[in-house]
Design a protein around this nucleic acid. Structure first.
Lengths: 305, 305
DNA sequence: AAATGTTGATTGGTATCCAATCTTGTGATT
DNA sequence: AATCACAAGATTGGATACCAATCAACATTT
């Protein structure tokens, strides 16, 4: 064992697989796929906070074994999107107001840091990309396309961070964004998009002029404005079973890598209209299918009022 | 069953378990414990990058089933400490130089953001705590206690982030610190501690005076100085089997005498010239003497955990 | 009616088995 | 002899069945 050449099974390759790992923290297949699908469903607000994610139920939905589901749930919990209680099961996370503020503070913090780095390092092409993005959102707002404006408003922050050219940071930021998206299931978003859009534009202006401190203050107030529009005391009621909520993502083959951002189902056989590309939870009331075998029993978990 | 209040299982509890979750995102027991142990072993450099983490082998070491080990490995991979290749297995991550720089950049970014927030919000007690910590490290350096100085130098960053009072951010930062610790298995740390200590002190000074931009620049150059001292082309050879590496962390039995971290003789093989001199692992000060119980019970205070 | 067992359901975990894939070693071919 | 191809072994990913612990709801008793 003291031989340096064959001391112990040591996997070594120069830089090939390292690169591909840097691109994506990929690993297995199914548990990751299922975790991605559940993440998608959560940030699409089809699975609302507090909703129980039973292992058996999910394993039947996805047609996999319970163990694969559990591995996926572990991922979700590590991402802060689910919460696992010992011997009780997994639930979609229901962050407290305190945690919501921490998430937004972390987001503020990250974007302030990105701003600081960009103010030093970003080249003209980067500034142009930011301005272009702001312009696109402005046009969407002008056209009255609220949905698109909303998506672009989110995307601005992602583009902003991507310009740091740091995949590690992008992953951290993406995780925070997912958690903020989860928060929207619990809050009433009621703020002025034009104000936020102006903020984006002004941040770019300030940064390009080197007025870093002011830009960072604006980022802070920007996020504070978002949080201020939030009210956490809203009660959310799951209106669908997980099976129904996840149905749009299971087109035939579970092999499909990742469902696109807008789960548009052109040929959805079952009625279930109105599920396309919804960002907010205004799902139609669904008459409970009497076919669900255990729906009568497992459904009733205390939800007062 | 059409009652809206009992629509579907919705887990709800006011705020109790939320708090405990924020404090501790732990879930099961064994897979988390094993993931923690592996993490500990990796950041202690007992498991070096590239080392294979076979499921069967680990399951025998920990006396658990393979599935539990796999769940732990998934956690490690999500944390960036391991790398899973399909049908090939898990290995301790071997970050590329590119990724190393990204990790340090992310760390810089986070700490710059923290600095920005602290410069606005931190009270006198917070500044005092920072100064006290710097002073402790200064005394350690003066006393020639390099090991303690190193630990304190690490800890400064953790304390710094903790003052933001944001658990989400703390967790992100802790993860980044773990990954930087992993990097030390691949690099030769060869920098001047006094300089870094001065940096800490000056950052506190600048921040308290409101000179945010300068403080952030200093944070940047601070981390760049650390990275500059790094050389990634070193080859690391596992000198222990995972069983040997993990033995000190297993319950009860601690044959402390037989497992020092760097048992490899500095008998630098004269062959090999100097090109890719795979000098033996000159572990910096972290190599504390494996006093029996101290190493058994995870000394979570020593390094950010 | 309140307190207290009892039972069912769900999770955490183990063992065993199987399929797919990767590695390795041997053998045939040029 | 060197190289290529193929087969055997090993390892991972996953499925299934099973057991123990725990929690929740129900039923019983005082």
């Amino acid at each position: 064992m003291s031989r340096p050449d064959k001391a112990y099974p040591c996997h070594e390759e120069p830089a090939d697989h390292v690169v591909e790992m840097a691109e994506n923290r990929v690993l297995s297949s199914r548990s990751q796929t299922i975790a991605d699908t559940l993440t998608r469903a959560i940030i699409d607000h089809r699975l609302v906070p507090g909703c129980k994610l039973g292992e058996r139920e999910l394993s039947e939905i996805f047609n996999v074994s319970r163990i694969v589901v559990r591995q996926a749930l572990i991922r979700l919990a590590d991402d802060g999107l689910a919460q696992i209680e010992r011997n009780r099961g997994a639930f979609v996370a229901k962050p407290s107001m305190q945690e919501a503020m921490e998430i937004y503070d972390a987001l503020t913090l990250v974007e302030q840091g990105v701003a600081a780095q960009l103010s030093d390092r970003l080249g003209p092409a980067g500034w142009a990309e930011l301005r272009h993005h702001v312009e696109r959102q402005r046009q969407a707002v002008a056209a009255g396309n609220h949905a698109l404006a909303d998506v672009l408003g989110q995307e601005f922050h992602t583009v902003f961070v991507r310009l740091s050219r740091n995949k590690v940071m992008q992953e951290i930021h993406a995780q925070l964004v997912r958690r903020t998206t989860l928060l929207r299931s619990l809050i009433t978003a009621d703020f002025d998009y034009c104000n936020l859009l102006d903020d984006h534009s002004r941040v770019v202006d300030l940064l390009e002029k080197g007025r870093l401190k002011q830009a960072m203050d604006l980022i802070d107030t920007h996020h504070r404005a978002v949080v201020r529009g939030y009210i956490m005391d809203r009660e959310v009621f799951p209106e669908m079973t997980p099976a129904e909520a996840l149905a749009p993502y299971l087109d035939g083959k579970t092999d499909g890598a990742t469902v696109p951002v807008a789960p548009r189902k052109p040929a959805n056989p079952s009625g279930n209209g109105g599920s396309t590309a919804h960002v907010h939870v205004h799902l139609p009331k669904i008459n409970r299918a009497p076919t669900s075998r255990a729906s009568t029993k497992k459904t009733n978990r205390g939800l007062p009022s």
